[in-house]
Design a protein around this nucleic acid. Sequence first.
RNA 1: CGGGGCGUGGCGCAAUCGGCAGCGCACGUGCUUUGGGAGCACGAGGUUGUGGGUUCGACUCCCGCCGCCCCGACCA
Length: 602
Amino acid sequence: MGIWSRYQPSPSAWRGPSKKCTSRRGKPRTPGCPARCSTRVVVPARAAPMMRKSGRTWRPPKRSPSIRPRRPPGVSGRLRAIRLLRPRVRRRRDPAGAPGRIGYDTSRPCSPRGGPVSQSGFVSSITRQSEDFPGWYNDVVLKAELASYSPVRGCMIIRPYGYAIWESMRDELDRHIKRTGHSNVYFPLFVPRSLLEKEAEHVEGFNPQVAWVTHAGGKELDEWLAIRPTSETIIADSVKDWIQSYRDLPLLLNLWNNVVRWELRTRLFLRTAEFLWQEAHTFHATEEEAAEEVATGLAAYVSVAEDWLAIPVLQGVKSPAETFPGAVYTHAIEAMMRDRKALQAGTSHMLGQNFAKAAGIEFLDRDNIRKHPWGTSWGFSTRMVGATIMAHGDDSGLVLPPNVAPLQLVIVPIFRTEEDRRAVAGAIETLEASLRDVQTVSGPLRFKVDWREESPGFKYNHWELRGVPLRLEVGPRDVASGQGVLVRRVDRVKEPIPLAGLAAELPGRLAGYQRDLLDRARSFRDAATFRVDTLGEMSEILDGEGGFLLAPWCGSAECEKEVSAKTGATTRVIPFDAPDEGGACVIDGRPSTRRVVFARAY
RNA sequence: CGGGGCGUGGCGCAAUCGGCAGCGCACGUGCUUUGGGAGCACGAGGUUGUGGGUUCGACUCCCGCCGCCCCGACCA
């Protein structure tokens, strides 16, 4: 079910470019400089620019505003525009020459209640989404302790809380993979140069991003070893001996591993030089069967994205320009982030016989003819942690779907006197016992009682930053009436609830919360999806609030490139459920048969 | 690679004309606190990126190196 089918019956349901989206007063963009990363000549041996823990946001003082001057009037808009585009400014002097400071201060707690701006115009500690989405993202990742920067440029350290999120989606996907008949295997980190270069398009596509090992054992290697950017070549080479007959097919393999792609511009989780992922590699006797496998892989991704991560996705075919190097075609799922930009969330490739031919894999078919098997490969990476953050988060921090949340419920005791403390502790102890047996969709309930010696308010903010779906406040007043106050992270709806019945209530509440997140994300995306027919309309929307654009496109690479050059948007997918529909290409007016999704993307 | 900017406790920043390296947060201890980011007191934490030079004296001035950030030559 895609947005096409939903909107199709009444074309009028498509939202045109509303005025609201196209002219945002007071939020000027820096002219001629779309919020896209710069590109550089790729020199493999050279280092990539770093995502560093450098400063990004001006943190005003909380308790002593008089010490630091306010941002001078007139500066803020400009500053905001600059920050949008250049989130990694290390330090900036106050343009007016006043001794104002702009810098990143991890010591500041995260903002309460969606980070309202105080009267003085100061923002609270995490950058607001509306002000600077990349800045918000960085703040959340670092402050929620999902990840840290590493001493190696472009790489990241995934911290326990972030890794737990990854483990949850990894385990869920692994269940899908095994259920559909695949076996996990391991192949080496190093790929001999000669192997990597066997498939022509593949080399060309990956070469700029490959990191090479040239020395080992104290001397230069006779043959350089690539640190795998992906494993197609080494697997094809290795399995050629395993495949002799059609009876050996299909061969359905999957690897959970790390790969290295020397990226020029990196972002925590979204694009790192080294990342964790799963890569499935399969070999089939017929093209039809391989095509079905491509769909099987994509279906697993759709399920994990929507059912597990509560991220609605569009499914479709990539344009030739966006196709995996060496593949015949690439299917992908695309998700919308809360800044209305697109994120490719998983790809499944039809490799045809390309890699099999390059590696010399042959099998004897039923008809006694030697043939090359058809291959597929599909991958899903730690980037999805970033997708989860950006698809649901708000100004207070993370909003996690219960299925992946490392903690689904946090209990905050509240008391003043020792007597109260005992009463609250007693009630919580009883409650804890009942919660131990609670089963949720994603396993036993993951909960914690926060007995730290901090104020309740501090704890609320602490756990909201970390996206814990449900919070239970238990104070003396509650205990007296056998209740607690249950608060939902996503909308902060508070509700008194009897402690005795909580254990039975929770699985349903969590499932409902999970559904609500998916619904919310879907409405958000649909409201930001527009049907457009001209380049002008596209620019108007993209320069306004942004969104997904369904536009006619003739299919030529030149026109695709031109759209990208003029609007910053690229083709994301040609959705499977896009109806046949005549139209004129937004660039050259040649006939288009279906609409394509264009968007600015990560 | 070209242009610009910057390296000072964990983080964010000061240090006037070259004169004892400071502040906030975070951290530790104690007491008072706890229904939306608590307060006070005490305390710990530094070879100012690095190598050289000038000087009675260098965070400060000069030169080299290293590293980082931004912009540019358009990219699965």
